[in-house]
Lab assay of single mutants.
Amino acid sequence: TIDEIIKALEQAVKDNKPIQVGNYTVTSADEAEKLAKKLKKEY
């Protein structure tokens, strides 16, 4: 679900690790936030 994706992003940001979500690779908190907002609009 979208919530699980967002939790995974938040965890990756805390661990400061890049995370791959679908076609996106998120490497920073800023990118994670942008991706989360984008995904919320889509779903």
Rank of each mutant, 00 (worst) to 15 (best):
L9I: 09
K37M: 14
L9D: 02
D3F: 14
I19A: 08
K7G: 05
K34Y: 10
E10L: 12
K40G: 06
D15G: 05
D30F: 11
Q20A: 10
I5P: 01
K17L: 13
A32S: 01
D30A: 15
E31M: 11
Q20F: 06
D30Q: 12
A36E: 02
L39M: 05
A12S: 06
V21Q: 00
A29N: 04
V21K: 00
E42T: 06
I5F: 04
Q11N: 05
D30C: 10
E31Y: 02
S28M: 01
E33F: 09
G22R: 00
I6S: 01
L35H: 01
A32N: 00
L9K: 00
N23G: 15
T25D: 05
S28D: 11
A32E: 00
I5R: 00
T1S: 14
A8T: 07
N23S: 13
I5S: 01
K14F: 14
I2L: 11
P18W: 05
A36N: 01
E31H: 03
N23E: 15
Y43R: 07
E4N: 09
K14W: 13
I19Y: 05
I2D: 02
Q20N: 12
G22S: 02
L9P: 00
K38P: 03
E33N: 07
L9N: 01
K7C: 05
A32G: 03
I6W: 03
A36I: 15
A8I: 13
Y24I: 11
L35Y: 02
A32W: 03
I5M: 08
Q20L: 06
A36H: 05
Y24C: 14
D3A: 14
I6V: 04
V13M: 14
A12M: 15
I2Q: 03
I19V: 13
K38L: 13
E42I: 14
Y43F: 13
K37D: 15
A12F: 15
A32H: 00
A36L: 15
I2Y: 10
D3N: 07
L39D: 02
Y43N: 14
E31L: 02
K41M: 12
D30E: 15
E4F: 08
V26A: 10
V26Q: 02
E42R: 05
L39S: 00
E4G: 05
E42Y: 09
K17G: 04
Y43G: 07
V26I: 14
I19E: 00
E31A: 04
V13K: 04
K17M: 14
A8K: 09
K7S: 10
A32L: 07
I2H: 05
E4Q: 12
L39V: 03
Q11T: 05
Q11E: 10
L35N: 01
K37G: 07
V26R: 00
N23D: 14
L35C: 14
G22A: 05
D30K: 13
K40V: 06
E4W: 13
Q11K: 09
Y24S: 04
D3T: 05
A29V: 08
S28I: 02
P18A: 08
K38Y: 14
T25A: 08
A36V: 15
E4Y: 10
L35G: 01
K41E: 15
K17C: 03
K37Y: 06
L9W: 03
Q11M: 09
V21M: 06
E42P: 04
T27G: 09
S28L: 03
I5G: 00
A8L: 13
Y24K: 04
A29S: 11
K7W: 13
D15T: 07
L35R: 00
D3V: 13
K14R: 13
A8M: 13
E31W: 01
E42D: 11
I5A: 03
L35M: 05
A8F: 10
I5V: 09
K14D: 03
D3Y: 13
T27V: 13
K41C: 15
V26G: 02
K37L: 14
V21I: 15
D3M: 15
G22F: 09
Q20I: 11
D30N: 07
K7Y: 10
E4K: 06
D3I: 11
V13Q: 08
T1I: 08
I5E: 01
A29K: 07
E42C: 15
D15Q: 07
S28A: 00
K38E: 15
L35W: 03
G22N: 09
A8V: 09
K7N: 04
Q11G: 06
K7L: 12
S28F: 03
Q11V: 05
E31I: 04
Q20H: 13
T1C: 15
E33Q: 12
D3E: 13
T25C: 15
I5Y: 04
P18Q: 04
K7H: 12
K14C: 13
Y24E: 06
V21P: 00
I19K: 03
G22V: 04
D3W: 15
E4M: 11
A8Q: 10
A29C: 10
A29P: 06
L35E: 01
L9V: 04
K38M: 10
K17Y: 15
N16V: 03
Y43E: 09
A8R: 07
L9T: 01
K38G: 03
E31P: 00
Y24D: 02
K14G: 06
E42V: 06
V21Y: 06
G22L: 07
I5L: 10
V26W: 03
Y43K: 08
L39P: 03
Y24Q: 06
K38R: 09
Q20P: 03
T1W: 15
E31D: 08
T25E: 08
I6L: 14
T25M: 14
K34Q: 12
D15W: 12
K40N: 05
K40P: 00
A29R: 05
V26M: 03
K17E: 04
E10P: 00
A36M: 15
A36F: 10
V21G: 02
N16T: 04
V21N: 02
Q20E: 10
D3G: 10
Q20D: 05
L39Q: 01
V26N: 01
E10R: 06
K38V: 07
V13G: 07
I6N: 00
A29I: 09
E33K: 10
N23A: 11
D30V: 09
K40M: 12
K34H: 09
A12G: 06
A8N: 04
I2G: 03
K40Q: 10
